[in-house]
C-alpha cells in the first residue's frame, strides 16, 4: 500500500510544467489534489516514474462567473467551489452535486478539474460538465486547446487528453432562465461511490415545461447527458406524474449499468428510474397549474 518509487517535480510556472511533461514523456503523470490518483498509486494500479505537481502554479486557483458560464481553475478544490456563493447563485447545480463528492476531508484537497481529468463515470462532476454542456481547456508545449464535454470523455476513466497535456480550467455552462436543477444519489455509506445518481435540469415557464436534460452517475459508460425535451415540451407542470412514466422508460433505455459486488445491473436500473421520478416530482411540486413559474 505504498506507491512505487517516483520522482516528484514541483514546477513554478505553467511553461515549466508543460515542458517537464513533454520531456519526461508518458512515464509522467500530472498531480493536483491527488484524491483519485494517490489511491491508484498506493494500490500500485499505476506506477508512473514521475509526478508533475501543479499545485504551485500561479493563476489556476480562480473561479470566474460570467453570463454564460462558471469557469473553474485547475487548483480550485471541490470544497472551495462548493462554498463559493457567486458560483452557487449562477449555477446552483454545482453545489447540489459537490456536497455529494466523497467526504469534506477529500473535498478539501481534491480539485474539481482534476476529477474531470480522472473521468470516472462513478464521479459526480464529469456528469455535471456534460449536463451543463461544458468544456475544458488543456495546455501543452503546443499551446492551449478547448475540448467540449462530449469530446473529452471517450471511455471509463479515459479522455482524449494527451499524456503531456494539463487541464488548466473547466467551464460549466449556465442554464437558460427559468431552469430549475436538482441532484440526487443513493449510496450504501455516506460519502461512498453512488449505486446510482442523477441530476435534472428542467426549464419551466408559465406553468409549462419547456426543456429537460438529465445526467447520471455510476450507471453509464461515459459521463453524458440525456435530452428529454421532446417528452416534456409544452406539457403543463401539473401533469408531471403522467410524464414521469415516459421519462423513466427513456432513462432506463439510455443507461447501461453493470453488476458488481455492491448491486446488480437490474437493481441499479431500477434505482435510476426511481431517482428520475423523484427529480421530476421535486422540481415540479411547487409549480401552480397556471401562471408564472
Amino acid at each position: 500500500m505504498k506507491p512505487a518509487p517516483l520522482t516528484c517535480h514541483s514546477p513554478t510556472t505553467l511553461d515549466e510544467a508543460v515542458r517537464l511533461l513533454h520531456d519526461l514523456g508518458p512515464e509522467a503523470k500530472v498531480i493536483a489534489g491527488g484524491q483519485s490518483l494517490v489511491p491508484v498509486l498506493n494500490m500500485r494500479l499505476a506506477t508512473p516514474a514521475h509526478l508533475v505537481d501543479i499545485t504551485g502554479l500561479p493563476g489556476l486557483d480562480e473561479i470566474r462567473v460570467s453570463a454564460e458560464a462558471v469557469e473553474v481553475g485547475a487548483l480550485v478544490t471541490h470544497r472551495r467551489l462548493e462554498q463559493d456563493d457567486a458560483a452557487h447563485a449562477a449555477l446552483p447545480l454545482l453545489r447540489q452535486a459537490l456536497v455529494n463528492v466523497a467526504h469534506p476531508a477529500i473535498r478539501n484537497r481534491g480539485t474539481t478539474v482534476g476529477s474531470l481529468a480522472h473521468a470516472d463515470p462513478n464521479g459526480e462532476m464529469p456528469m455535471i460538465l456534460a449536463l451543463t454542456g461544458g468544456s475544458v481547456t488543456a495546455a501543452s508545449v503546443r499551446g492551449e486547446r478547448t475540448i467540449t464535454a462530449s469530446e473529452l470523455f471517450v471511455g471509463p476513466m479515459e479522455t482524449v487528453l494527451e499524456p503531456d497535456e494539463i487541464l488548466v480550467s473547466a467551464r460549466f455552462g449556465r442554464f437558460a432562465e427559468g431552469t430549475r436543477t436538482a441532484f440526487t444519489e443513493l449510496t450504501r455509506r455516506s460519502g461512498d461511490y453512488a449505486l446510482a445518481g442523477a441530476a435534472l435540469a428542467l426549464q419551466v415557464s408559465d406553468g409549462q415545461l419547456r426543456t429537460a436534460r438529465m445526467g447520471f452517475v455510476s450507471v453509464t459508460e461515459l459521463p453524458d447527458a440525456l435530452d428529454l425535451t421532446e417528452l416534456v415540451a409544452g406539457r403543463p407542470a401539473s401533469t408531471s406524474a403522467d410524464i414521469a412514466e415516459a421519462v423513466v422508460e427513456r432513462v432506463t433505455e439510455h443507461i447501461a449499468p453493470e453488476s458488481d459486488i455492491h448491486a446488480t445491473a437490474d437493481y441499479r436500473r431500477h434505482l435510476t428510474g426511481v431517482l428520475a421520478r423523484r427529480l421530476l416530482t421535486e422540481l415540479t411540486a411547487d409549480i401552480p397549474a397556471r401562471g408564472a413559474a
Binding site: 498531480i31 484524491q35 499545485t55 469534506p104 477529500i106 484537497r109
Partner: peptide
Amino acid sequence: EHGVCGACTVLLDGQPVRSCLIFAATVQ
C-alpha cells in the same frame, strides 16, 4: 491508505485532509 477510514486525518492550513493521500513533497 486509500482515503476511506479517516484515521490519518491531519489539518492542512486548518482544514482536515487525508495525509495518506498526499505526497509530502506537495505540501511544502
